[in-house]
Design a protein around this nucleic acid. Structure first.
Lengths: 166, 166
DNA sequence: GCAAAATACATCCATATGGATCAAAAATCA
DNA sequence: TGATTTTTGATCCATATGGATGTATTTTGC
């Protein structure tokens, strides 16, 4: 709309993604925008928080892992994981058994139902990934992945000096 | 999975970032890990949710914009924006005045305090950005940014077919 | 011009979230 | 061995979150 008014939105986004903070803004924007879509879908379709699906993914893919291990794949506070695992167990998607090697730890295993449900969710996630990255060709995707992995491997991603979390 | 020890963590992450969902997993991991650090910092240091700082950033950078416009920079539900703007106003960091062109809309302006605080926060964010991307050299950062912008420009990032939000 | 639809923003309410704390089980060490 | 510290996971509580709804204003269609 109109003349003297709100900054043109595309321009505003462009300008932000050209500012000093462009790297941070750009990658955050992509993930925020995707979450907006994905979180709503998971919550409506499966009546569970997104992190429940992340946890289920981890448990089906790496059966026997502990809650603690999930945190390394999906960096979230400890109690968040604890709760979503309890939810998955209530729904019969997962079973926890006290580890025989460590009485504190619980070994997490998916049930047949859990595996089935994850299969369905993974298929959707693949579709969504395809949409999200449709702007990139295969070569670009490969490069993008390589760079993300490099960032992920960085020492200070999870433990910051600047923000006193080292 | 081997007998005994929990799956090696680095291996688990590597394997996940090589799976079908590698693109989605990789970029999500990077942002989740960063949020873990950044959100905590903003909340402890400034006693406000992260999205309050996002909103303040938008208002200082694009004075006069409306709450609605903030959503385009930082995709969050409408009421989240509404609340953090109210918080910023209570703290004297922002003033809202009814737009003279549209009686429904409110034009948002930073106060001197707001600008000062944002300056401080931006400096920290820059430091953090530097840490986060320290694994990439200048050329790689440029490429990464270009690819993020390409993804951001994609039609279906914000409006999904697969997840019925089109 | 007037009713109907759309838009901007605030608020309500049920639920999610995360820091702090707690309990139980190793691990460390004198 | 027994005391101390560390680690794993559960729970408590205050707050954040988001969908639905409400209110006011503008736009649309006739």
């Amino acid at each position: 709309m109109e003349t003297g008014t709100p900054l043109d939105r595309q321009r505003m986004l462009d300008q932000t993604l050209s500012s000093d903070l462009r790297y941070l803004m750009a990658v955050s924007y992509v993930v925020l925008a995707n979450n907006q879509v994905t979180n709503r879908y998971i919550e409506r379709r499966y009546d569970m928080p997104v992190h429940a699906w992340s946890a289920l993914y981890a448990i089906v893919t790496y059966p026997g892992l502990r809650a603690k291990d999930i945190q390394h794949l999906f960096p979230r506070p400890q109690n968040t994981i604890s709760r979503v695992v309890a939810l998955l167990e209530r729904r019969g998607l997962v079973r926890q058994t006290v580890s025989d090697q460590d009485g504190r730890a619980k070994s997490l295993m998916p049930t047949a139902e859990g595996k089935k449900l994850l299969g369905e969710m993974k298929a959707k996630a693949l579709e969504r990934q395809e949409e999200m990255f449709s702007a990139l060709d295969d070569g670009e995707r490969r490069i993008f992945l390589k760079l993300c992995r490099k960032i992920a491997a960085g020492e200070r991603l999870c433990h910051s000096e600047a923000m006193g979390d080292s």
